[in-house]
């Protein structure tokens, strides 16, 4: 069961978190509630996900730079492997999958993002 306890609801400087509609995405088939406009990375971190992928040698990875530089956080998104989840915004019904190594393309998937 994925918990959703990592969000900073209120903040002394930033105030209450801005209103954002819930967006349902799927991690390896399991539903996760994301916030409209946020990247996949933060939706997964908010849900308590600690492993985003495994390398070809089976070593776990999550994120490292968080701004699209390092490619540590890549996952398979809507059938496309190697997508940087820190700079990819969530969309309703988005299918996010943990990839092994370089991952593989799903049939018919298009790199449109």
């Amino acid at each position: 069961m994925l918990k959703t306890s990592n969000r900073v609801a209120d903040h002394a400087v930033l105030g209450a978190a801005p209103e954002a509609a819930d967006v349902e995405i799927f991690l390896d088939g399991q539903p996760i509630t994301a916030k409209e406009g946020e990247p996949v990375m933060s939706a997964l971190v908010a849900a308590g996900v600690t492993v985003f992928r495994h390398t070809a040698k089976g070593s776990p990875r999550r994120m490292f730079c968080g701004i699209g530089r390092c490619t540590d956080c890549v996952m398979k998104v809507d059938g496309v492997p190697g997508v940087r989840t820190c700079v990819t915004r969530v969309a309703p019904g988005m299918r996010v999958e943990r990839q092994d190594g370089k991952g593989n393309w799903s049939e018919g998937a298009e790199d449109g993002r």
Binding site: N6, V8, H11, E38, M41, V45, P60, R61, C65, G66
Partner: peptide, 29 residues
């Protein structure tokens, strides 16, 4: 980056990454 045994483990990240998460996306890493 700084290389040391275990530096690739999930949970090791740049300070800027953590800052982006808490201040922009409002999520604690």
């Amino acid at each position: 980056a700084l290389s040391f045994p275990g530096w690739t483990l999930p949970g090791v990240m740049t300070a800027g990454c953590a800052q982006t998460l808490v201040n922009v996306y409002r999520v604690l890493p």
